[in-house]
Design a protein around this nucleic acid. Structure first.
Lengths: 316, 316
DNA sequence: AAGATACTATAACGGATCGTTATGAAGATC
DNA sequence: GATCTTCATAACGATCCGTTATAGTATCTT
């Protein structure tokens, strides 16, 4: 015989609290409701669930056995409610975020860790990609957010762009690089050193091409390419090579004192780091929370960079 | 946010089966019912539970997490249904049975074991007592059944008597007792041996008094009293003492070949072994099953005794 | 690629039941 | 034994639940 799960829960509540009134209160119901439920159950089952006229109400062996199952349900119901609640406020769920490798490795991974210190039950599924892939992934609903540099003229119909950092590049090298000793390194000096290329497909690679050609290079002297951010940094730490990187990525590495930016201004691309999302997509609270967290993280990073530049005279 | 447990179960069923139609079938519902439930849930939660347009239906991370709790409820619900079902057919529950010590020890305990070989989930709470106590216990709803010898004139208003065996007593002794060698032992011979008294308060004790006095004894030569059935049997096995016992109890011990009945007829009391129960009480199916089992057990015992008496000429 | 098929979503409806307030009955406590 | 708390019953309104009928959509087949 099937028993309404709600009735089992009411039974459990009454058994737990030892009274119809208290049990009803526990469930936020009026007393007659659960009283009727119990009467109905006893009539239906043809078996008393409580010994009559005892206070506190004492369950029958049978009633207790049934209530045990009710306890399970009550607990499961509570857990489900908690889950929903934590989900609604963005405290649980999944965030699928894709981004360009350097930003992800250099900045976002750390931000994810910070985010999860306040949202431990939010899982973050990260993936790599460049703008075309990310745009496709967004539209296919494979990721919730994309964090990548976008060109002004990038086509992004149906996508929402939230700019979070200007797309400024710098030339990076190790802190012991000889060029850092010069007062005012000239662009032509740059061509004297080997270069490390950003990953193929990245906007940075195009930037590097344009940069070197503008400096008068007839061909690219690429010594190393294809490495991740960590590979590039480790390469740079061991050789006097140069590479091009987003300023923010280099800035984030300042604590390590292994690489830094050359005090030379290079043409900045018409590009900005942005958070992309589908404009028509449903965004779970967790995704919203994460996006705002990333935005505020970059906001403070921008201020940090500003103050840093004011403090140390840039190029000294 | 509280979620209707029924909805969680429906969600679980759909996740489990991978389809709305199959999930509805699993619960014995029509498809539109659970379809509406899902739509309503998604609207209420503001969060998709399934990825749209995929077959088999694939739950969202969130939907799956919620469904997990639904699984728990589904399982608990099934278990509760099974419990009710087994209870309804008397396959589970509790039987509280009280009875006189000798019958309980000598006959009922074994019958209980037999009963439970077919009803393993029925718990039997046994207690001892004589008629007045048992009647009180029945009326106070402390026991469901009483098994005891009752006098014809016992007052039992509100109680139902089901006679299961005539109340015939025999004189018991060990199988090596010298009186068994006599062709026709006379009542007077009985007085030459020490007697073991049944427990105080038992009808047997009154029977013993009456018997001995009718045999011309001026006083009772009681050597041992107060022991349980096992104590009495062990005493008898070690001495040529005599005692009075219900025939059925002695009969049940025949396998042990340690005690037997003297081939002497003694006046049988106006008494019968009966199953007592409150006439107005609710009896659970398990109690009913047990009562009928006991009745049928004694029924076959009665036939057994009859055939046994026809086979071995009684008194040889 | 287009029809066929199967599954899901929506609409409309009848009815069960759930929860409420009001009130009476029964224990428990002093 | 009187009072107070608690449980049971009655009446009622409304939610919502499950049903049938039907339209829309995705998958499969040839």
């Amino acid at each position: 015989m099937k028993i309404d799960e709600r009735h089992l829960i009411q039974l459990a509540a009454v058994v737990k609290t030892g009274g119809v009134t208290e049990g009803a209160a526990l469930l936020g119901l009026a007393q007659p409701a659960v009283s009727r439920t119990l009467s109905m159950l006893e009539k239906r089952l043809g078996e008393p669930l409580f010994v009559r006229g005892r206070r506190p109400l004492q369950p029958t062996t049978f009633g207790l056995a049934l209530a045990e199952h009710g306890f399970v349900m009550l607990a499961a119901s509570r857990k489900a409610s908690d889950l929903v609640e934590s989900f609604r406020v963005g405290k649980s769920g999944v965030v699928r975020v894709g981004g360009t490798p350097f930003f992800m490795d250099g900045l976002i991974a750390g931000i994810c860790a910070e985010f999860q210190s306040s949202h431990p039950d939010v899982r973050i599924d990260q993936s790599y990609g460049y703008f075309p892939d990310l745009r496709a992934a967004l539209k296919a609903d494979q990721i919730d957010l994309a964090i990548c540099p976008i060109d002004i003229l990038d086509e992004g119909s149906g996508l929402e762009f939230q700019q979070i950092l200007p797309g400024r590049n710098v030339v990076a090298c190790r802190v012991t690089h000889p060029l850092l000793l010069k007062r005012r390194p000239q662009p032509s000096h740059l061509l004297e050193y080997p270069w490390v290329a950003p990953p193929p497909g990245s906007p940075l690679l195009a930037d590097l091409r344009a940069l070197l050609l503008s400096f008068g290079a007839t061909e690219l002297k690429i010594r190393y390419s294809g490495g991740s951010l960590m590979a590039v940094i480790n390469y740079l730490k061991t050789a006097d090579a140069l590479t091009i990187m987003p300023h923010s990525v280099v800035f984030a590495q300042r604590k390590d004192k292994s690489i830094t930016a050359l005090p030379i201004t290079i043409p900045h691309p018409e590009r900005a780091l942005a958070i992309l999302s589908r404009v028509d997509a449903h965004r779970s609270p967790a995704v919203d929370q994460f996006a705002t967290f990333v935005r505020s993280g970059f906001e403070s990073l921008r201020h940090l960079i500003k103050r840093h530049e004011e403090a140390v005279v840039w190029g000294l």
